[in-house]
Design a protein around this nucleic acid. Structure first.
Lengths: 317, 317
DNA sequence: CTGTTAGCGCATTCAC
DNA sequence: GTGAATGCGCTAACAG
């Protein structure tokens, strides 16, 4: 149309040194005028690269995940890579489908938190089978069997230490509540709790739905069998908190509740909730950095990094 | 390798009627064995379709957005389409870049909430310029000038009604707090508030950062110039709430706070927070349905749908 | 400095 | 019922 060949256009737009400044300028103007945009799909197909990394997570309704996303984004923003996020809703089928789709040309690598159903089914083939040249990194909920880079949180240790703190502050009957016992993260945390209380008393585990946790905690409180609760996730934390409020044992400090909750919630509750804080942003940053490293040197051995949590005491006693 | 041509394989895998059941079976087995996956990029390039819709939002750190995402996903899950989500972090540049990338072959249509910076800059070209055959839908924060399908929330009306309720319950000095006055949603809500209080008293607007809101509300409370606060977003709600708690005017019901907050937060605060609830899931569902409709009939005239909010009273007085 | 050609991986006519 | 050839939009090696 402008009396030049197609490849000249391509070269001009890519600022090739073999095109004269004059024609470059003409072509660029025409491109702007006609609002030409190179078809990324074709570029990807040709180059075999996507310049995109995929993030596959079970849910977005939780503070930790949004923090991790922020961390990933802050790192990736400094690179030419784009991010696409997909949500599995804790479904194995959806996870497998998404991982397959993404790795079929859309992305160069993926960052994954494994869904609950996948853990229950122990079905990990979708992580093993895809083209080895795609980079894979798991964070938070990882599968031991699958060989890949990993970014972990010190779940067992963090809960162990937090429980110890409770014991040190004079608590004698500590109950654990959880809605996430099906996934390895939950199991690790239970280990930490158990290891801490074992010398003092038998572990008391309430591993159930939100509603049932609230009811069961109330019963235990009525029986006077609890003076502290360790909650493993936000749902369990709030259920335990509500039970304590209902039984009026929180404001007078008869019972302490500590849990995994966002700062925003913990600080606005009355009384404030003591929490175990995970550094989600750091997890995301490390995950992104590690993946980028692997993208550059695909042959490197897989690494695992552990990010420590912080015990954020907000009660007095 | 299996003594058939490339096109036979393609047809067999796509279940073409021109291939004999026998060879189909052989090819499928081989495909499974070698874990063959058709390259989606190539398929897209060939077909000109992506079977994917893009969701572009400014942030994910807020309950409404996660609800909308759930709504979108529940609808899209019933279709052959995939979803990819991208976050703009309220940045114009990122938004423009993402919209351009996605529409260059990755997606068939996009669902967008416009970022704050884009509103401030009034820079909407990236929404106008892309290929008309891509479908575009805006929700929540929409640009009046841009012609496309829209799903809106009844911002002005909802705040108008809520403020009226406060007045009806005997409140006489209502202050508004907001961190979102730069975007049209915030402006609409301010209109609703103003329209409601105007007959009674001059509007009092605290439009600031979270920290400043908390301080300014405290000052107003000290001066005895407020007996109710309408907060336009979660940050403002919690800042106003903390100020009220600090001044001990909430538990004795001297002051009412109502705001935009997730149920999870509202119900666990003491006292519970009265809220204006947006039906995010419904917004997402409608957005997805409308976009799918447009994908089928690209020539239809743009539609706008308004989703009503619900006033969820949790205080007594 | 510019144009011709081939090929990325697939689906789809059109012959056979 | 099967295979050879063409092209999706682009880049890059090669000629001119």
């Amino acid at each position: 149309m402008l009396d030049v060949s197609i490849s000249t256009v391509s070269k001009a737009l890519n600022d090739s040194h073999e095109i004269s400044p004059a024609t470059k300028e003409r072509i660029r103007e025409a491109a702007k005028l006609y609002n030409y945009q190179p078809n990324r799909i074709a570029v990807n197909l040709k180059s075999g690269k996507a310049n995109t990394i995929g993030v596959v997570i079970p849910s977005i309704q939780n503070f930790f995940m949004t923090q991790v996303l922020r961390g990933i984004e802050s790192v990736i923003a400094e690179t030419p890579y784009n991010i696409i996020i997909s949500i599995t809703n804790e479904s194995y089928e959806k996870e497998a489908q998404i991982v397959n789709t993404l790795t079929q040309g859309f992305v160069d690598g993926i960052i994954v938190t494994v869904s609950e159903e996948t853990f229950i089914k122990k079905a990990y083939d979708h992580f093993r089978s895809f083209d080895n040249r795609k980079a894979l990194l798991m964070f938070d909920r990882v599968v031991g069997d699958v060989v890949c880079d990993k970014v972990l949180v010190d779940d067992e240790d963090a809960v162990f230490k937090a429980t110890k703190e409770l014991l040190a502050s004079g608590r004698k009957q500590i109950t654990l509540t959880s809605t996430i016992s099906n996934i390895n993260v939950g199991k690790q945390r239970i280990k930490g709790y158990t290891r801490a209380v074992q010398p003092i008393h038998d572990p008391v585990l309430i591993s159930d739905t939100v509603e049932n946790i609230e009811d069961k905690v109330k019963i235990l409180l009525d029986q006077g069998k609890v003076d502290a609760i360790v909650a493993l996730d936000e749902e369990a934390s709030l259920a335990s908190f509500r039970a304590g409020k209902a039984k009026k044992v929180l404001d007078n400090k008869a019972v302490s509740v500590i849990g995994y909750t966002s700062k925003k919630i913990a600080e606005n509750l009355t009384p404030n909730l003591t929490t175990i804080d995970q550094d989600g942003v750091r997890v995301g940053e490390l995950a992104a950095e590690l993946l980028l490293k692997k993208l550059k040197k695909p042959l490197k051995d897989p690494e695992s990094i552990i990010v420590n949590s912080i015990y954020n005491k907000r009660f007095t006693s």
